[in-house]
Design a protein around this nucleic acid. Sequence first.
DNA 1: GCAAATGCTTAAAGCCTGTAAGAAAGCGAG
DNA 2: CTCGCTTTCTTACAGGCTTTAAGCATTTGC
Lengths: 189, 189
Amino acid sequence: MARAGVTAERLTQAAADLADEIGFQNVTVSALARGFGVKPAALYSHIKDARDLRVRVALLALAELADRAAAALAGRAGKDALVAFANAYRDYAKEHPGRYAAAQMELDSEALPTSAGRRHAEMTRAILRGYELQEPGQTDAVRMLHSTFHGYVSLETAGGFRRHPREADASWSATLDALDTVLRNWPAG
Amino acid sequence: MARAGVTAERLTQAAADLADEIGFQNVTVSALARGFGVKPAALYSHIKDARDLRVRVALLALAELADRAAAALAGRAGKDALVAFANAYRDYAKEHPGRYAAAQMELDSEALPTSAGRRHAEMTRAILRGYELQEPGQTDAVRMLHSTFHGYVSLETAGGFRRHPREADASWSATLDALDTVLRNWPAG
DNA sequence: GCAAATGCTTAAAGCCTGTAAGAAAGCGAG
DNA sequence: CTCGCTTTCTTACAGGCTTTAAGCATTTGC
């Protein structure tokens, strides 16, 4: 029974990697245990249950995504900031589809206050500093930006754009131009 | 062993209803069988397997959604059409969260050509008739619209907008205004 | 009315989650 | 160093879900 050096952190990391490989939905406690050369029951010393594991992966993904977005945003403003943020978001989702799916989990109640949620909102709001938007338009714009990014990435990774020859990259770029346009001409409430 | 009158259509319908009640992910062959007062194995005479069932629900949802969208679009043009289409989309998702989740399934390969996918694309393109958009901007705009609708609805139902007092309806309305603005001022390629 | 097709049941294998009880490994004193 | 406490892992097991196979029952149609 040599110990395998399992910790909650390593489990989370491994689960995230596994999610990127085989899909978040297919990450199971059993598969994870197999990867550590350990019986499934052993993992329950480190995680509460399967949902707990998924929430940890979600929080990991949110934190990583926030880090990337923050790095992309540093030193930029206006459309530059918008494009850098959006690309960081999309690139992360493409590199880490499993993690990205995890980040989409509903994790109301408990965990979200753990920094990640707030960071995302603040960063999206930071993008808008380059545009002159007053409340409540600012909140509306934050929601629209988030929706467009998430919607695009989500449809693209689900294969929604593969039935038309137009490159997904080109439409993405056009969409960002369009968002910039609308932020500069935000309609009055 | 009185027969329960199970058919693939009834199963699909019941599965869709069940999805709206308990969530698409929680719809299982067993639960469905229970609802029909039948053993799980009995359902395999009508459906190939669990995935087949989910695909059928997805196609049902896509067809229903397309019907609603078509009805909303009839006789309208320009911003009127945009708003009606968008609201039909969002309302359907809110009324039928399970079906809507099903519609988001990846169903590449096989089933999509079954009309629904094409209908959606054509309708979104119909909205753009009221705006003067040439290819490839038209395709880009279709993708942006779809992304924004899906992203907004998806984030809203996942509870993403509940942490801020601004009403989700108000931001939705503002987002539609913004989309109308950007379609009328589509940036040059 | 009888045979073939169809719908349902039982049985069983395989995989997953999660709990409980116990063995083994590591750790911190004394 | 060694005794005992804590932690980690194992086995065992209960309960669910999926799916296949074999068989009985009910319909259907000739």
